[in-house]
């Protein structure tokens, strides 16, 4: 017993930091996996309304985003002030939707294609005219799963 006590007193053991990189790497991998890089900068105002009956969109790779709203101030000189549609990172016309959907669809494995959802991120102030036109175009392109993006509301 005395032998052990003497040994401990002599040199206090340094804490090993050898596993520190491993821990950091673990955290790193976690964030790498959950990261989704912001793929489009918004050129239209986008303040989605509130709702209560919300569904979470689980698989981000199966979702394509259509933004509708008034162009932000910076782009009003070019695109005017009436609501416009934004696909990807540029303002587009309703007639560009089929190509946009097809481009997204081609990047999805065939088995998962029926699960593709279009997320409509529509500004609350927009009138239904343009939204109806977009919906009609989606129906014509046989993209029937649609999600009206909304923020949760507590009531």
């Amino acid at each position: 017993m005395a032998k052990f006590a003497r040994k401990r007193g002599k040199d206090s053991p340094a804490i090993s930091t050898a596993s520190l990189p491993d821990i950091i790497f673990m955290l790193l991998f976690f964030f790498m996996v959950v990261t989704v890089m912001r793929d489009s900068t918004l050129q239209v105002a986008n303040n989605v309304p509130n709702a209560t009956e919300l569904t979470k969109l689980e698989k981000k790779s199966l979702v394509n985003y259509l933004y509708i709203g008034k162009p932000v101030e910076k782009y009003q000189a070019v695109y005017g002030t009436s609501p416009r549609l934004q696909l990807g990172d540029k303002i587009a016309d309703i007639s560009d939707i089929p190509l946009f959907l097809e481009e997204h669809r081609s990047g999805v494995p065939e088995k998962q294609r029926p699960g593709i959802t279009s997320s409509l991120k529509v500004d609350g102030e927009v009138t239904m005219g343009i939204v109806t036109d977009v919906k009609t175009q989606l129906r014509k392109s046989n993209q029937l799963k649609v999600n009206y993006s909304a923020k949760p509301r507590v009531d």
């Binding site: 919300l54 569904t55 997320s119 799963k145 999600n147 009206y148 909304a150």
Partner: peptide
């Protein structure tokens, strides 16, 4: 997470 009202057209 993107949430919203899911509809089927």
């Amino acid at each position: 997470v993107d949430k919203g009202v899911l509809v089927k057209l």
